[in-house]
Amino acid sequence: MQFLTLTLAFAAVAVAVPIDQNLVARAPPNVPTAAAAKTALAALTVAAQGSSTGYSRDLFPHWITQSGTCNTREVVLERDGTNVVQNSACAATSGTWVSPYDGATWTAASDLDIDHMVPLSNAWKSGAASWTTARRQAFANDLTNPQLLAVTDNVNSAKSDSGPETWKPPLSEYL
Rank of each mutant, 00 (worst) to 15 (best):
A9G: 10
E74A: 09
L41C: 13
A27P: 04
C70H: 12
L175F: 14
N122K: 04
L148C: 08
P164E: 02
V98Q: 14
V76C: 11
R26C: 06
A134R: 03
A92N: 04
A109G: 02
M1T: 13
H62M: 07
N145D: 03
Q66P: 07
Y55I: 09
A48Y: 14
I114C: 05
G50P: 07
Q2M: 12
S157L: 14
K168E: 00
F3E: 01
L59Y: 15
A109N: 02
T7S: 04
A34S: 13
P119V: 15
S56M: 08
A37H: 01
Q137D: 03
Q137N: 04
D153K: 09
C70F: 15
D58F: 08
T69C: 12
V118L: 08
S162Q: 15
V46E: 08
I114V: 07
D161L: 09
Q147H: 10
G68A: 11
V118M: 06
A42S: 08
D111L: 07
L112K: 03
A9P: 05
A40K: 14
D153A: 15
A138Q: 00
T166S: 06
A89N: 10
K159Q: 12
P119H: 11
V84P: 03
N22F: 02
L112V: 13
F3N: 05
Q21F: 13
T166Y: 05
T107H: 14
N122Y: 07
L112W: 10
A104Y: 03
I19W: 01
S121H: 01
L175S: 06
L23I: 02
L77E: 10
Q147G: 03
F139W: 00
I19L: 09
E78G: 07
